[in-house]
């Protein structure tokens, strides 16, 4: 398969070139955040306060890694199910979030926000936490350390293997793939 090489933060040009089903290698900084961190993000915004990171152009990875063994940057770090973040994602996309990495289908409001604000949803292979850990070169907790595996961690990734699931043109790899192979 052809592989598209992309770097973060994601710019409009790169986003326009991505289509559902593309295999990509992503390099650059990304941020982990899952259930509890997303709840705090939204609570923070509702109080009128600033998020602990500037999410403009950034990519959030729905991931709660296993602890790093001695001598390693990170433990296993595959994606968690994205739909649990659907209630929060449109608000973050409207604030400039450009990429989300996870696994599983998104809600229609998320897909609408992806099209409206030009963002992309990427799939990382669920359950491939050991493989994905090989692309993480550095890891640093940047917010909510008290949440343990749910803390926000800034990762530097090199050639992280992903597939484009939802692009700005309204395509959805899950729907396309399933329709193609349904008997």
């Amino acid at each position: 398969m052809e592989i598209k090489i992309i770097t973060t933060p994601l710019n409009e040009e790169v986003i326009k070139g991505l289509k559902a089903g593309d295999k990509v290698f992503m390099s650059g900084y990304i941020y982990t955040a899952r259930d509890a961190a997303h709840k705090r993000f939204i609570d923070t915004l509702e109080r009128g306060e600033e998020l602990p990171l500037d999410i403009k152009g950034q990519v959030i990875y729905y991931c709660g890694p296993s602890p790093a063994p001695p001598g390693k940057v990170i433990g296993a770090c595959g994606p968690t199910t994205s739909s649990r973040m659907d209630a929060y994602a449109p608000k973050l996309i409207a604030l400039g979030l450009k990429g989300m990495i996870g696994k599983g289908k998104r809600s229609q409001p998320v897909k609408d926000a992806i099209s409206q604000y030009n963002a992309v949803y990427f799939g990382a292979t669920g359950g491939a936490g050991a493989l994905l850990s090989k692309s993480v070169k550095s890891s640093e907790v940047v917010a909510y350390e008290d949440l343990g595996p749910e803390a926000v961690v800034k990762l530097y990734v090199d050639k992280m293997p992903l597939f484009v699931i939802n692009d700005i043109y309204g395509n959805d790899l899950y729907e396309m793939g399933t329709a193609q192979y349904r008997r």
């Binding site: 709660g64 433990g75 296993a76 595959g78 669920g126 936490g129 050991a130």
Partner: peptide
């Protein structure tokens, strides 16, 4: 990789 590096197959 999990077997060789002694890390979990999946973080969950």
């Amino acid at each position: 990789i999990a077997n060789k590096e002694n890390i979990p197959i999946c973080q969950d």
